[in-house]
Nucleic acid binder design. Sequence first.
DNA 1: CAGCTGACAGATTTCAATATCTGTCAGCTG
DNA 2: CAGCTGACAGATATTGAAATCTGTCAGCTG
Lengths: 194, 194
Amino acid sequence: MATTEILTAERILEATEEVLRRHGPAKATVVDVARVLGVSHGSVYRHFRTKAALREAVTKRWLDRTSEELAGIVAADRDPEARLRDWLAALFAAKRRKAGDDPELFATYRVLAGENGEATGRHLADLTGQLTEIVRAGVDAGVFTTADPATAARALFHATGRFHDPVYAPEWEQPGIDAEFEAVMDLVLRGLRA
Amino acid sequence: MATTEILTAERILEATEEVLRRHGPAKATVVDVARVLGVSHGSVYRHFRTKAALREAVTKRWLDRTSEELAGIVAADRDPEARLRDWLAALFAAKRRKAGDDPELFATYRVLAGENGEATGRHLADLTGQLTEIVRAGVDAGVFTTADPATAARALFHATGRFHDPVYAPEWEQPGIDAEFEAVMDLVLRGLRA
DNA sequence: CAGCTGACAGATTTCAATATCTGTCAGCTG
DNA sequence: CAGCTGACAGATATTGAAATCTGTCAGCTG
């Protein structure tokens, strides 16, 4: 690839994703990343202080992409219950799609997410923040009832964990899963309604 | 130990638990079990056709002990909502206690449960069966509303997974966990009430 | 002769030597 | 002289030979 281009953090992150996709998280080395870019591995260390920092940056990028996908639904101009259903369904669909399309890469991100709890923690806070917004809108509109929207949002997130937590990814391909998702959604939405 | 006693499946299972507790799932061998019993490992194979069968039997025993603990609550003479709360709280407490008291043994059972999906599957069916009984009692008493108690029971079980699925065990020691459990319980119970 | 032993073949695990990787930095290059 | 290289030390991973384990079975023993 165009060895004349200057080496940016962005280009390194793209190359790292490439290497992770190819080799998986256990065998992806900084030397591999440098080779893909046609530079020495010393140059990579100019942009990322450690291999852990590089992996964290890749993870953050990936998590942020998911957050952005969902932010659109929060801002949509629909009634809160429909938005809530859409948001949870979209989260499930996005995770399932990613897990199904490229299981190797998905497993890789599972490992990375497990490694740096900080980036993952911020991402979870971000998602429950989005949920809180929808719940609050519902309370304001009089269609939801709850003492504390933030607590309710966290409860919703935990209650639907089976349909977005990556540890359950293998079960997302089983036949009855959609009916199970509907059952849980119906249960928690009934619990939220005024 | 009493080498004069005859070798029963039960004695082998006890010795196996002992070995698993000591060495963990990865390093527990049939030879170790035989050594604890003071017999040759060939004798163990007289009672269990393979090492996998032995591990499955140990797992089943462990899972059945949990089921029995909870069965008492299902049969209790209290109103269904209280029984449901008790049952879910007891499941959480039992799992948390086991994980906290002997993390090594708990991790061992996690591995074993992952290995033989069949025994685990039957156990989950057993637990949701217990839940279904409580839900049905609630519907009959007019305090719960649901189209199908069995589906509702499965939804309840999934929604509270964070508080009984062993993959979440590390989080059960974190400070806010009880409040989170209460929040999820309140949400799903509101969703179930008539 | 029912129940156990222990030697055995093939599969799996351990261990130590060898190779590769991470992170640094003095010096090269355009 | 900003940005890159490549040699280096210590840490980590790979590899293959040796040790151990699984599962079988002919024969021992009480």
